[in-house]
Simulated scan of single mutants.
Amino acid sequence: MALLVNIFALFFVFVIVNGDCGVVTKEQWDGLTPIRVEYLPRPVELVIIQHTVTSTCSTDARCAEIVRNIQTNHMDNLNYWDIGSSFVIGGNGKVYEGTGWLHVGAHTYGYNSKSIGITFIGNYNNDKPTQKSLDALKQLLRCGVERGHLTANYHIVGHRQLISTESPGRKLYNEIRRWDHFLNDVASIKN
């Protein structure tokens, strides 16, 4: 019985510390509460990858600071309800909760209510994504399928395929183009 209690306690601590899919929760990165939320129909079939065009980060403190600054800019200057991205990935290999799996984000005009937007911290026209950050994305996507947030046959696209932008940057775009779920021809999903 004591072993069972210890296993439950470890599981409980793991879930609390790591959140859903190992994501750093808003509470953990000191995020603001959204002004309003709109629920995202799930499972989602489309994942949009983008970048922040900021400096990169490699420490927990610096990555969390950048995520806070992005949220502040989105809410105070752009009048968004919350940070625009569903998730933000740092060079430290951690995934930060944005609007998350359940809520509509504000990352790609015309696609927000039918997609998950995942943003990498950095400028990937200049920088190469870290292996830790790429592994974090792959793990997040696997977990998203396992938890029913994403369809098993979801599609990954670069932000640049849907709107006029360089995002997610040439080097990150080149990386995701080689992945199994990458959708090269977006004609069927384009607004």
Rank of each mutant, 00 (worst) to 15 (best):
L150F: 06
L4I: 15
T59G: 01
V157K: 13
V37D: 11
Q139Y: 06
N73E: 04
L4Q: 11
K132H: 14
F12E: 12
R170Y: 05
W81N: 06
C21W: 00
R62K: 07
F120D: 01
A64R: 00
A9D: 11
R147D: 00
I66L: 07
V24T: 05
V104W: 12
G98L: 06
L78P: 01
W179F: 06
L102R: 03
C21G: 03
E65T: 12
E45A: 12
T33P: 13
V53D: 10
G98D: 06
Y124I: 10
I70W: 00
T59A: 02
L3K: 13
T130Y: 00
N126Y: 15
W81Q: 13
S188M: 12
F12H: 12
I118H: 02
E175M: 15
E146M: 08
G84T: 08
N73A: 13
S133M: 01
H155V: 08
G98S: 15
W101I: 15
F8C: 06
N184A: 14
V88R: 06
T33F: 06
I35E: 12
G144E: 01
C21S: 08
L3Q: 14
F11H: 09
V44L: 03
I16C: 15
T52S: 15
A61Y: 10
V13P: 00
V47P: 04
S115K: 04
L3N: 14
D60H: 11
D82A: 13
Y124L: 14
E175H: 04
Q71H: 07
T165V: 07
S115W: 04
G31R: 00
D82M: 10
L40Y: 09
Y80H: 13
S55Q: 05
I49Y: 05
G19E: 01
N6P: 06
H159S: 09
R160T: 00
V157P: 09
K114M: 08
G100F: 02
S58L: 13
T99L: 07
L40Q: 09
C143V: 01
F8D: 09
C143F: 00
N79D: 15
P168D: 03
I156R: 11
H74F: 06
G100Q: 06
N174G: 14
V17T: 07
C143L: 01
V186F: 03
P168R: 04
F11A: 11
I189F: 07
C57Q: 08
I70T: 07
L10P: 13
G117H: 02
E146S: 07
Q161V: 01
Y80Q: 13
R68Q: 12
G22L: 10
N153R: 10
T56I: 03
V104R: 12
